[in-house]
Amino acid sequence: MAGYIVRRVLQAIPVLLGTTFLIYFMVFAMPGDPIVALFGDKTPPPQVIEALRERYHLDQPFIVQYFIFLGNIFRGDLGVSFSGQPVSEVLASTFPVTLRLAALAIFFEMVAGITVGLISGLRKGGIFDASALVVSLILISLPIFVVAFVAQYIFGIQLGWFRTTVGIGAPMQDLILPALVLATISFAQISRLTRASVIDTEGQDFVRTAASKGLSRNRIVPVHILRNSLIPVVTYLAVDFGTLMVGATVTEGIFNVPGVGRTLYQAIIRGEGPTVVAFVTVMVLIYLVVNLLVDLLYAVLDPRIRYAK
């Protein structure tokens, strides 16, 4: 097991190097000069542009810029945003917020999705199953910004149950509404996935054996059916967690969550290379870690899977 983990971590190093290089190249190749954009509709004198380019090393060829960046990273210096804040500080203030938002959303979609999926699967073809299908289809087909705006309008402005946007410091109670919005989309996926998996497992021999052994339904369902149905669901949850960590831009914008998606979007618009690269690097790291954890979780869920050696 330990050997397996070490191997996976070592594998992550070239992946990380490769992605930073790619991302750096893409930011560099982005058309348009961020320095010119700093001046709005006004045109700055060329000498001032030159001086600013020099300051941000933008006058160097790409490969030199990349190695300056890489060298700084090894010294623990991720660079400085245009507003003078160290990128490491930006990371430290935004990632915990998004992490909490993602965790909350995962929690909501897991609880709701697995419950609904399990019931639907056990009572296949019933009224509950049919209505769950309809609801899932509606949720899957709604774009997230529609859900977000409607939820914000009804629960935030009309009913006043939640704060319309996330307050300073992103307290947990403010994150509930955006997390519910994020959860709606994946809830549908998870409930469908669980349902199919439960139906599949229920028809397996070992379930029939357990039933004929005289085990009660209360034991068969959680231990034999649910546990064995969860493998595809866990994979999906892990992928979804990765997506939530990087892709909540729209929801974070609508609810003004000071998290990764909103900050990264602004950095891209402003052409702040160091911020973009640092953020994406950390995202890749998270993705790698989450995937490793999922693989380890398989072994826990299904004893037949072993990472021996």
């Binding site: 705006f149 914000q152 309008y153 935030g156 402005i157 006043g160 704060r163 319309t164 946007t165 307050g167 300073i168 974070e252 914008g253 609508i254 609810f255 003004n256 000071p258 909103r262 979007y265 602004q266």
Partner: peptide
């Protein structure tokens, strides 16, 4: 002075009394 990434979010906050 609260920093908003979108105009929509600031308008919703005015509507919501924040």
């Amino acid at each position: 002075i609260i920093f908003y990434a979108t105009q929509e979010a600031s308008y919703a906050d005015l509507q919501g009394g924040n």
